[in-house]
Design a protein around this nucleic acid. Structure first.
Lengths: 214, 214
DNA sequence: ACCTGAACACCGTTCAAGT
DNA sequence: ACCTGAACACCGTTCAAGT
C-alpha cells in the first residue's frame, strides 16, 4: 500500500463520503472507521477535521440543509409557504438520513435558520404579528418533520419485502372488536401513509386554519 | 457471586429494565450488555427472550404505547381529538425515548393501532368519510410526532448548560443581513419552540381547517 | 499541521456447552 | 428451556509518535 500523500483529505471530501455511506448503508450502519476505509486512510486521520463523530454528523446535516432552494417571489403567500414546506420535504425524501439527523440529535442552532428565515419572511410580509409568525413557523416546520419522517419510515418498510409482509400480516391480524375502525379503514390507511397528496392534505389543513379569523 | 437461580428472568422484567436504562442514560447509550449487567446475568441470557436488540426495542415501544389512555366520551369531537393528541404528546414527553423509537426505527404495525383507533373512531362518528378520516388521522398523528420530537430535542438542549450556551451563541451570531426575520424574531422563536401553548396552537390550526367546508 | 499504529474500553452476536 | 463463558468482528476514542 502506497502511503497516502499529504493534504489529500479535507472536510468537504469527508462530509461527501460520509453522506454517500449513510445513504447506501443506512444512517445507523454508518461509522467513522467505514468512512476512513473508504478514503483509504486510518480512522484517526478524520480527527484532524472533526473533533468526534457528532461533529461529523452535524457537518453532514448542515451541508444537506444548505441545499434548500430559496423562496419564490411573485406568488401569493400561501403558495410561498407551500413551496418552502415542499422543498424541505423533498430534501428529506432525497436524503432520508436528514430526518434522523434533524429530529434525533443535538442541534447546533443554525441548521434550520434558512427554512425559518423563509417562512418567517413570508408570514411577516403577509401581515402576521411577531408571535403568530413564530408560532406558525414552528407548527409548519414540525409538521413537515413529523409527516416526512413517518413517510420515510413507511417507505423503508415497503422496500424490504420481508418487513412489508410482516407489517401487512400484523395489520390483518388486528382484532375487529378491539380495533373496528382501523380494520374497516385499512385500505384507506395504507393509501394515506405517505405521498404528495397526503402531505398536501395536512398542509392545506394548516393553511385553511390560518385564513380563518384568529 | 452467587449464581443466578433459574427463572428469575422474564420478558417484562427485561423490558422494564431496558426502559429505565434508556431514560436514565439516553436512548443511544443503551446497550444489551448494560441491561444484562443491571439484571446480574450474562449478555446471552437476554437472547432467550428476544432474538436481537431490535426485538427488545420493539417490545419497549409497544409497552410504552400500551400506556395510552382511552378516548373520553361525552365531549364534542374536537375535544376528543385534542385529548388523543395531547395524551400521545404527554406520553412522549414522559418517555423521551418513545419519539426516537417511533420515528427512527422499523415498525411492527400495531404500535399505533390504539391511537389510530381512537382518532378514526372519533372522526367517523363526527361524520367524516373513510378517506378524509384516514387522511386527517395521519395528519394529526404526524403533527404530534414531529412537534413533540422537536420539543424533546430542544428541552434536552436546554438541560445541558454547555449545549444551551453554544446554541444561544450560534443564534446570536446569525447575520442580520442574511437572516433578518430570524434575528428580529429571536425572542418569539425561543418562546415558541415547545410548551403546551405552542402545541395547542398547531393543533387548533388543524382543527380550524377541518371545520371549514371541504 | 497532518497522518499513522497500537491500545483501551466498549459493542451485538455466534457457537458450544452446561443444567 | 434457560443460562454461562469464550470468541469474533466490529465500534469511538486516547495516546504517543512520526513527518
Amino acid at each position: 500500500m502506497a502511503r497516502t500523500p499529504r493534504n489529500t483529505l479535507n472536510a468537504e471530501l469527508i462530509v461527501r463520503t460520509a453522506l454517500r455511506l449513510m445513504e447506501s448503508k443506512g444512517t445507523d450502519a454508518f461509522s467513522l472507521r467505514g468512512v476512513a476505509a473508504e478514503l483509504g486512510v486510518g480512522p484517526m486521520a478524520l480527527y484532524t477535521y472533526f473533533r468526534n463523530k457528532d461533529e461529523l454528523y452535524d457537518a453532514v446535516r448542515d451541508h444537506l440543509m444548505s441545499l434548500l432552494p430559496g423562496v419564490p417571489a411573485d406568488v401569493p403567500w400561501p403558495d410561498q409557504v407551500r413551496s418552502v414546506c415542499r422543498s424541505l420535504r423533498l430534501l428529506m425524501l432525497q436524503h432520508p438520513c436528514l430526518a434522523q439527523l434533524l429530529s434525533g440529535r443535538p442541534l447546533s442552532g443554525h441548521e434550520t435558520a434558512r427554512v425559518a428565515e423563509g417562512l418567517l419572511g413570508v408570514l411577516r410580509s403577509a401581515g402576521f404579528g411577531p408571535e403568530q409568525a413564530a408560532r406558525t413557523h414552528t407548527t409548519l416546520f414540525t409538521y413537515v418533520l413529523g409527516s416526512t419522517s413517518w413517510e420515510i419510515q413507511m417507505a423503508a418498510e415497503r422496500r424490504d419485502p420481508e418487513a412489508w409482509r410482516r407489517l401487512r400480516a400484523t395489520m390483518e391480524s388486528l382484532s375487529a372488536r378491539e380495533f373496528p375502525s382501523v380494520v374497516e379503514l385499512a385500505p384507506e390507511l395504507a393509501r394515506t401513509t405517505g405521498g404528495d397528496e397526503q402531505f398536501d392534505y395536512g398542509l392545506d389543513l394548516l393553511l385553511a386554519g390560518l385564513r380563518t379569523p384568529s
